[in-house]
Design a protein around this nucleic acid. Structure first.
Lengths: 102, 102
DNA sequence: TTATTTCTTCTAAATTATAGAAGAAATAAG
DNA sequence: CTTATTTCTTCTATAATTTAGAAGAAATAA
């Protein structure tokens, strides 16, 4: 089976945790918080697109919000496959560190 | 700070765990065991080289063993920086999964 | 000598990551 | 209205990483 890259792992997990509020801008903000540094929009959207193309994420267009700059948002959610591979990735990570003393 | 890619994480951890027996062939075997699939030699040596160039691993030539095919081995060990970044990567991984329910 | 084994080096191609310019779609301001 | 501003996404080019596997090197065995 194929494992996720670190960025893919971070993005899937972030989308999962953001629930109904997972779209480009909120995802980017959360990733920056996690990594403690700012990232470009490309660093977010390019892998999100790939994950979607690979069937690990699904997307839909939201309504435009009633605020200024209300371009409609593209929301993300894990597919069944996305959730499964995220679990497998966690399992790999766990077994990797299982008996490690660093 | 810069985080490790997944392969770098796996390699550093494997070198660490193999202790005095960490060289190309044993590392490759352990990684294959971890991932549950075979990998090419390039998939091992190329990133090992890069980690060495970046100062996270140090290397030295071992003696040739008294067995057939005894070309001398190139051993690897984590540097102080390598160990530090491995710890930081584990911390990232932990915080990533801290309050995750997948 | 030649074959065989273990191990590493090298190189090319595919994939992934990253930055940031550009574009699209909405409301606010004048 | 018309222009500015804001939020958000798309696009594109480049850099970095991964991967496969051919080739080469260094030893012992036949």
């Amino acid at each position: 089976m194929e494992f996720l890259t670190r960025m893919e792992e971070i993005l899937l997990l972030t989308v999962h945790q953001l629930g109904t509020e997972a779209y480009g801008v909120t995802i980017k903000a959360r990733v920056e918080e996690l990594l403690g540094k700012s990232v470009s929009v490309g660093a977010i959207y390019v892998p999100l697109d790939r994950l979607t193309k690979h069937g690990l994420l699904k997307t839909w267009q939201g309504e435009s919000s009633p605020e200024r700059g209300g371009r409609s948002k593209k929301f993300y959610k894990l597919t069944r496959d996305g959730l499964a591979i995220l679990r497998e990735t966690k399992a790999l990570s766990d077994s990797l560190w299982a008996d490690a003393t660093v």
